[in-house]
Nucleic acid binder design. Structure first.
Lengths: 133, 133
DNA sequence: CATTTAATTGACTTTTACGTAAATATCTGA
DNA sequence: TCAGATATTTACGTAAAAGTCAATTAAATG
């Protein structure tokens, strides 16, 4: 791979290797309408945009979002609707999602704090045993 | 409920109401060894410590951790082991979990940024429509 | 051109995290 | 003490998110 890797297409196996997922998983996301790779014959060809979508999906998964959640968030990034009511609805949904994410961040910070505490305990215990780090 | 609510025990339904989950869910967590409420007869009585554990579980869930993950993290908060090898192993695991959490935080920040962007687009669109906020 | 090699499709299976229902037991106030 | 509400146990069911396997098909390569 080149440092200036702006290649047009990726194969499915390239993506499985890059992201450590299976072909089944990628096809599953396509079935769910989260990606639309183009085809050469029957073979899927993934454009940079498909790859970005995949990254987005995996990020969502790491945060514990369901496929449905991810689909919903993706839709928020498309062209905003032209009608006022729809727009206001979209904005409300965006804010809901943001709150959800901010709650997650609080959860993370708390958990990290607790891990820090647990680590300290363990380090203290190690010190008691009279060992260097 | 009192402002100084340090009551000894909670019933299962009190917890379901407080946290918006079902009795089945709570019993499931007990089956999974994540909580050990005491019993009066067959009836479960949840102490403050059980309630705290439940909060911990739900926090883990919000972050997309599996039951197995949560159990593993919980075990990190118990008395650290006495043997050096075990201690070092524990410390390594703690650091792995922390990294995982920090990755999640990065994911969150990215996603929030994108939501911000999507919101701006929508607000701009609204402005175009010549409407006030 | 014959054959590995890589992809696709479709069907069935598995795991996780509960939901649901039935039968039984316990408690509680009238 | 008895009806109605609350809990428990056991067992089976289910939805989401893939995993696995088999049959085809297409592509590439010696």
């Amino acid at each position: 791979m080149n440092t200036l890797d702006k290649r047009e297409f990726h194969t499915i196996t390239e993506l499985t290797k890059e992201f450590g997922i299976s072909t089944r998983t990628i096809r599953f996301y396509e079935d769910e309408g989260l990606m639309k790779p183009v085809r050469r014959g029957r073979t899927r060809l993934f454009r940079p945009t498909d790859r970005r979508r995949l990254m987005f999906i995996l990020r969502g998964k790491r945060l514990g979002f369901s496929i449905a959640d991810i689909r919903e968030i993706m839709n928020m990034y498309k062209e905003p609707p032209g009608e006022e009511g729809q727009l206001r609805l979209l904005i409300r949904r965006i804010n809901e999602k943001r709150e959800e994410l901010e709650q997650k961040r609080l959860d993370i910070d708390l958990t990290i704090q607790e891990l820090d505490h647990a680590e300290e305990q363990s380090l203290a215990r190690l010190a008691e045993l009279g060992v260097g780090t």
